[in-house]
Simulated assay, not measured.
Amino acid sequence: MVELSIFERMEHGALGQKFDFNSVFEQIKWNQDGLTPVITQDHQTKDVLMMAWVNRDALIETLQTKQVCYWSRSRKCLWRKGESSGHRQYLKDARLDCDGDSLLFLVNQIGPACHTQRPNCFYLGLDIDQVEILTQPII
């Protein structure tokens, strides 16, 4: 008999059933750079704030401290959201998708989420013939 993967077992799991964190953590699908994508959403409004990347250390730190930490691909180091701007994100809930290749952080966002000072990073509306700026910076 073929043993089911942890994600296949969870797929067939019952509401409220619990699984060992380490068993699941070891099966997260990290890319060739040791990263997995995370979508960050406001826990109250459900607005999507941003998309970023985490590595193992960033995910563990976020879960332990409840202050969101990402991996900065440009700086090649851990990036604690808001450490320079003060616009921090505090974790309310973390979720893993059904096949272990992306995460969702539900956060309490302090200040704007985007480095452009806009409420979120998704302020550019796309159409077939134009791109439109949809939100103003928060001043």
Rank of each mutant, 00 (worst) to 15 (best):
residue 22 N to Q: 15
residue 24 V to A: 04
residue 11 E to I: 03
residue 111 G to H: 11
residue 130 Q to E: 08
residue 54 V to R: 05
residue 108 N to Q: 14
residue 127 D to L: 12
residue 74 S to R: 13
residue 117 Q to I: 11
residue 38 V to H: 06
residue 8 E to R: 14
residue 79 W to R: 09
residue 137 P to S: 09
residue 78 L to R: 12
residue 49 L to A: 00
residue 43 H to I: 03
residue 65 T to K: 15
residue 107 V to D: 01
residue 56 R to S: 07
residue 123 Y to N: 06
residue 131 V to E: 03
residue 112 P to Q: 05
residue 21 F to E: 07
residue 127 D to N: 14
residue 63 L to C: 07
residue 47 D to R: 00
residue 105 F to W: 12
residue 101 D to P: 00
residue 98 C to P: 04
residue 45 T to R: 00
residue 126 L to K: 15
residue 92 K to W: 04
residue 37 P to F: 02
residue 43 H to Q: 10
residue 6 I to A: 07
residue 42 D to E: 06
residue 50 M to V: 02
residue 110 I to H: 13
residue 72 S to N: 10
residue 35 L to P: 00
residue 97 D to M: 04
residue 79 W to A: 02
residue 31 N to S: 05
residue 78 L to S: 09
residue 112 P to I: 05
residue 90 Y to K: 08
residue 132 E to D: 07
residue 110 I to R: 14
residue 95 R to L: 08
residue 34 G to M: 08
residue 36 T to R: 02
residue 26 E to L: 12
residue 109 Q to M: 02
residue 133 I to A: 13
residue 17 Q to L: 08
residue 55 N to V: 02
residue 38 V to D: 00
residue 91 L to D: 05
residue 7 F to W: 10
residue 16 G to M: 11
residue 3 E to A: 13
residue 115 H to P: 03
residue 6 I to V: 10
residue 51 M to I: 15
residue 9 R to K: 15
residue 38 V to Y: 03
residue 126 L to P: 07
residue 92 K to C: 04
residue 66 K to G: 01
residue 27 Q to W: 00
residue 60 I to Y: 05
residue 125 G to I: 13
residue 98 C to I: 03
residue 123 Y to A: 06
residue 131 V to Q: 09
residue 94 A to I: 14
residue 24 V to K: 08
residue 17 Q to W: 09
residue 107 V to L: 02
residue 58 A to M: 04
residue 64 Q to P: 02
residue 5 S to F: 09
residue 59 L to Q: 02
residue 57 D to M: 10
residue 86 G to I: 05
residue 22 N to P: 11
residue 17 Q to I: 10
residue 93 D to I: 07
residue 58 A to S: 06
residue 74 S to T: 15
residue 109 Q to E: 01
residue 112 P to W: 04
residue 39 I to E: 02
residue 12 H to A: 14
residue 13 G to K: 11
residue 11 E to M: 10
residue 10 M to D: 02
residue 97 D to W: 00
residue 81 K to T: 00
residue 23 S to L: 10
residue 80 R to L: 08
residue 90 Y to Q: 03
residue 48 V to M: 04
residue 111 G to T: 06
residue 82 G to S: 10
